[in-house]
């Protein structure tokens, strides 16, 4: 069961996702214990594997630290659904093979605590709590290729060895 953790704020930034005071490590499991700490100190206690984070515009703005993606992935969050994403965060997520969903409708219709199921191929979020099916635009092909390869580096490693 995947629960939605909804933070309707815009501009949730990388310092809130993973504060710089924890950047002295790149261990994903350790970063995960501070995931979204400066936004919601209770987030790591509440989140369960497969849950989703829902946010407003410009999610992930600020620093280029990929640690932000790792902290979220490390906390076993399945995806982030936002009205829009900051550029470097978006790119980092794709490069890491982590799927992001851009959908204003989903942000408007999903309520905190709702149970959701996502069909990535079809581009549909099923909010089981309110019974709505919300369509979203799947990522473009080049991004799907990177994700399918398990991230940009796996793709490059395969090409270099190929």
């Amino acid at each position: 069961m995947s629960k939605a953790h909804v933070y309707k704020r815009d501009h949730i930034n990388t310092d809130e996702i993973i504060p710089a005071r924890y950047l002295n490590t790149d261990a994903e499991a350790e970063l995960a214990t501070h995931c979204l700490e400066d936004l919601d100190v209770n987030f790591v206690k509440k989140v369960r594997p497969g849950d989703v984070v829902v946010a407003g515009d410009d999610f992930g703005c600020g620093s280029s630290r990929e640690h932000a993606v790792w902290a979220i992935r490390g906390a076993k969050v399945q995806t982030v659904i936002a009205r829009s994403f900051a550029r470097i965060f978006y790119r980092n997520a794709i490069d890491c093979g982590f799927y992001l969903i851009e959908s204003a409708e989903a942000v408007n219709k999903i309520t905190d605590g709702d149970e959701v199921e996502i069909d990535y191929d079809a581009g549909v979020i099923h909010d089981k709590t309110n019974g709505r099916k919300i369509k979203f635009q799947p990522l473009p092909d080049f991004a799907l290729e990177i994700i399918a390869a398990g991230g940009l580096l796996n793709k490059i490693a395969a090409e270099l060895k190929g």
């Binding site: 790149d26 280029s64 990929e66 470097i88 790119r91 980092n92 490069d95 940009l152 490059i156 270099l160």
Partner: peptide
Amino acid sequence: GIGSTDLAASIAT
């Protein structure tokens, strides 16, 4: 600015 994965890709290729 880029993240670490892009950085790794740039360094290697």
